[in-house]
């Protein structure tokens, strides 16, 4: 008899693998482990707190100040910072602090909602395309290529020129429906590598429906990629808003946004002498984006099983 089968005959199956294991405790999911890692990441935690404060301040703008952000006050044109108006007023006499608060509301709204639309569409198209492969994949990816080659900036400018009265919502929709292509490709490639794992085959073999395989098995495992993508997108969407508003094709001029506030800096006189008009929104944008990027990096490290943090 060879060694293996001899062993097979002699060893009975032990009923419990390890009787003196530690007392029962609930297992730790990978999410919990990632959360613990994130909590230990100082820059990311500072950034999360910062972003939270910025969001809360923007949302409670109407409570914090009773000045109408759109009110043009000829008495205050180019007013310097004072006790009453902490950061002064701009060239239309609008209070900078109020504008910052309300502007944050617009910029963050655009950033978050564009990201939401993009991530939703990108995940949907990327997952379906990567999971089914073959013809479905070819069709969806050619469509993605087509959308990707769409000149984004030109399209936004044309839409904004045709529909002059369109507000923030139109901008969100245009950016959202044109911007999902990159996210779709990233999600698709991740899904394609993830679905090769035997657990997907195993889910099919126990009779799980394809839709459920995608939702319950694939999505949780590509979620880390999606979250990191989303944070990077959030930062770039705020930049897109700022950029478009700066060149005058973004948010309508009467709606305060950080990008609109920067627009005044296009005037050389303002730029060289009236720092209080453009430095605050500039700093707000810089710090917000910086913190979002730190959060993104923090997520990336937290989800990476190889990082030791």
């Amino acid at each position: 008899m060879d060694p293996v089968s001899r062993q097979l005959h002699e060893e009975p199956t032990p009923p419990n693998l390890d009787a003196n294991r530690k007392p029962i405790k609930r297992g730790q999911s990978q999410w919990m482990i990632a959360r613990r890692r994130l909590l230990h990441n100082v820059p990311a935690m500072i950034s999360i707190v910062f972003l939270f404060i910025v969001t809360v301040l923007s949302l409670s703008a109407s409570i914090l100040t009773d000045i109408d952000p759109a009110r043009i006050n000829p008495m205050l044109i180019d007013a310097k910072p004072s006790a009453e108006h902490w950061l002064g007023a701009d060239n239309a006499g609008r209070d900078i602090v109020t504008m910052l608060l309300y502007g944050g509301r617009t910029s963050l709204l655009i950033g978050f909602s564009c990201t939401a639309i993009i991530i939703f569409l990108g995940t949907l198209i990327g997952t379906v395309s990567g999971f089914y492969g073959g013809k479905v994949d070819s069709i969806l990816m050619r469509f993605t290529d087509f959308m990707m080659n769409f000149p984004f900036l030109v399209f936004v400018i044309v839409v904004k020129t045709i529909f002059i009265d369109t507000g923030v919502l139109a901008l969100i929709l245009v950016i959202g429906f044109l911007g999902w292509t990159g996210a779709a490709r990233v999600v698709r490639s991740k899904v394609m590598s993830e679905k090769e794992n035997e657990y997907i085959l195993s889910a099919i073999s126990i009779g799980t429906k394809p839709s459920k395989v995608m939702l319950k098995h694939l999505l949780p495992n590509v979620m880390s990629t999606i979250i990191v993508q989303a944070t990077l997108l959030l930062a770039s969407m705020i930049v897109v808003e700022t950029g478009l508003s700066f060149i005058g094709f973004g948010v309508p001029p009467d709606v305060p946004s950080w990008g609109n506030m920067l627009q005044t800096a296009r005037n050389p006189g303002t730029l060289s002498e009236k720092w209080w008009i453009w430095i605050p929104p500039g700093l707000a944008i810089t710090f917000t984006i910086l913190s979002i990027n730190f959060i993104g990096e923090g997520f990336k490290d937290a989800f990476n099983p190889k990082s030791s943090k």
Binding site: W31, E198, A203, I206, G207, H217
Partner: peptide
Amino acid sequence: RQDFQMVFQDPYASLNPKMMV
């Protein structure tokens, strides 16, 4: 599929790491 099941080769890849036992 209820009537025929499979036990997979790689116990590390055949269980969804995100799901509770």
